[in-house]
Computed example of a mutant assay.
Amino acid sequence: MVKECMEALADTLFEGKEGQQLKQKVRQIPLSSTTTTRRAELLSEDVQSQLDSAIQSAPCIALAADESTDVSDNAQLLVYVRFYNEETKTFVEDILGVTALKTHTRGEDIYLAIKEMLTQRRIDVKNAVSITTDGAPSMMGREKGAVSRLKEDNPELLSYHCIIHMSVLCSTLLEHHAEVMNTITKLVNFLRASSAHQHRLLREFLSEVDAPANDLLLHSNVRWLSKGKVLARFWKIRNEMKDFLAQQKSHKAEVFLHFLEEESNMDILAFLVDIKGHLNDLNLKLQGKDNSVCDLVAAVQYFQRKLYILKMDLEQDCTHFPSMKEIQAVSHSDFFPHTDYLPWNPATLAACSR
């Protein structure tokens, strides 16, 4: 704004070449940090004002709330909104707001945070027809849950369990599979996070042996798809990991090396790499904007049908399990026990076709 005023002043006071030269010099003046910040704030306020105006004119809205913890252990509540924009004649999905839960993350705290957010944006809670959550007790508690409190303000409010969180709950690992997954996580943490010096040695070793990857990935419960990516990266350089651990002179390294040398553990690891890859494919299809309920249900039903193919494939040539096929070519392992992990039965397939 300041530059525009100065250029207009130059046009008024000077004419011809002098005016053009002065305007050119004005354009070269760098903006101060406060000016840049203020400009960003004005743009943000304008975008929020347009969003608020569209929400307030919408016939109804749907909310989605999720509480998570960031890398600095601060609890954050994120609320998303979906509504029909009367002006553009389209459905709109956008973030309504982010607020910090400074002390507790109880249902009462989440309820008050959502209410305050709606009040500040001048949105009537009775205009919300539904809310989707992760199904946690603080959200869905019968008496003190955030959704129960919101239903006291709006008895017609519908509540849903996020379909992605439901798919994660359904992919719980069996005892031996969970043990292998936990051990691999501990091994990755041991190599990457226990010592900065050891991490540098690991990267240098992988570079020297020309490994398929130059580092390991850390697992995070906050990030979606993390387990699958961690396992896939580890699988690529599993042989190099054995060589690196063999060079380490510590009891932990010996324990992890013995674990990797066990053929049964590698069979389970190969299965986890492949099945987590299939689950990640499903997870990605359930994410993103502009997905209707029909699209999400269709993706889940397709995956349920796919379980039949995967289960039959495990009993034959492992076409859809490339990591297991790689192991099978060397050790001729029997992967039939892994079929118990796939919860498919004829009733499931019949339910999918209805």
Score class of each variant (00 low, 15 high):
D274E: 09
D334F: 13
P322N: 07
Q304I: 08
T339F: 04
N265W: 10
K285T: 04
S292M: 15
D313A: 11
L245K: 04
M324H: 10
W344K: 06
Q248H: 06
Y308G: 07
A329H: 12
S331F: 03
F321R: 00
M324E: 02
A253S: 14
N280M: 13
K325Y: 03
Q301I: 12
S333V: 06
L245A: 07
Q247R: 14
E262S: 10
N283L: 01
L284Y: 08
S292A: 12
V300E: 03
F244P: 00
S333P: 07
D243G: 12
F335W: 08
F244W: 03
D313Y: 01
F336Q: 14
D281P: 00
K285C: 02
M324W: 02
Q304E: 07
L284N: 15
V297K: 14
F336S: 15
K285E: 14
N280I: 11
D313I: 11
H320T: 01
N283E: 11
L314M: 09
L342S: 06
L282P: 00
N291S: 09
A253F: 01
L245N: 00
F256P: 00
P343D: 14
F271A: 01
N265E: 02
G277L: 06
I309N: 10
P343G: 15
N291K: 15
F244A: 05
K249T: 14
L296Q: 10
R305K: 08
L296R: 09
P337H: 05
L279K: 08
C318Q: 10
A329P: 00
F271S: 02
D267E: 12
G277P: 04
K306N: 04
D267N: 09
P337M: 09
A270S: 06
P322E: 00
V300G: 01
K252I: 02
A246F: 03
L310I: 10
T319I: 10
A246N: 08
L310Q: 08
Q301M: 15
F335C: 01
F335T: 01
P322F: 01
S250F: 14
F259Q: 05
K249S: 11
H251V: 15
V293S: 08
I275C: 05
D317P: 06
F244N: 01
C318A: 03
N280W: 03
E315V: 08
K276N: 09
T319N: 01
Q287T: 12
A299W: 07
C318M: 11
Q247S: 09
K311V: 12
R305I: 03
Y308S: 04
L296G: 02
S292Q: 13
L286E: 00
D274P: 04
H258C: 11
Q287R: 04
K289L: 09
M312W: 12
